[in-house]
Amino acid sequence: MSDIADGAIWRVEKDVQNAMAHARKQPMLESDGRCHFCDEAIANALLFCNVDCRNDYDKEQAALRRTGRR
């Protein structure tokens, strides 16, 4: 019984490691003082001017990934 449990634990750990490695490869947005969706001037620490721009950006990126353009 412990062999099955050990195998399951090993599999879960491998899946977590693979997911983390994949997440690290994803490009990260950097704050540049402009909204990444509408290009409006914003504070340097922010990426988007509001929640709507963030959501629209996420939807646009998801659509690009689905169509294979990103």
Rank of each mutant, 00 (worst) to 15 (best):
C35N: 02
D15Q: 12
V51G: 02
E60P: 03
R66L: 09
A45S: 06
C53W: 00
R24A: 06
A5G: 04
N55Y: 08
W10E: 05
D52F: 11
I9S: 09
V12N: 09
R54N: 00
H22V: 11
F48Y: 07
K59C: 04
A21Y: 10
E30D: 05
S31Q: 04
R54A: 01
A5R: 14
A45P: 01
L29P: 00
L29Y: 01
D3W: 15
K25R: 13
I9F: 15
A19G: 06
E60G: 07
R65P: 02
D32P: 01
T67L: 10
F48N: 00
D32W: 03
R69M: 09
D6G: 13
A43S: 08
R66C: 04
K59V: 04
D58E: 12
S31G: 12
E30Y: 05
D58A: 15
D6Q: 14
E40V: 01
D3I: 15
A8K: 15
A41W: 03
N44M: 10
A23V: 09
R66E: 09
E60D: 07
N55M: 10
K25H: 06
V16C: 05
G7R: 15
K59S: 04
L64D: 03
L64H: 06
A43W: 07
Q61E: 11
D15A: 14
A41T: 13
M1H: 12
Y57I: 03
A63D: 04
I42E: 01
A62W: 08
A63K: 14
R11S: 06
M28G: 03
R69G: 03
I4F: 13
A43Q: 09
C35M: 03
A45E: 08
Q17N: 13
L29A: 02
I9G: 05
V51W: 12
V51I: 10
N50F: 09
K14A: 05
R69N: 04
H22F: 11
A21E: 06
C53F: 01
N55A: 12
E60V: 05
E30F: 13
Q61A: 10
A23H: 08
A63I: 04
K14Y: 06
I9D: 04
A23Q: 13
A21I: 08
D58P: 02
E60T: 09
L64I: 05
A23P: 04
N44G: 06
R65V: 13
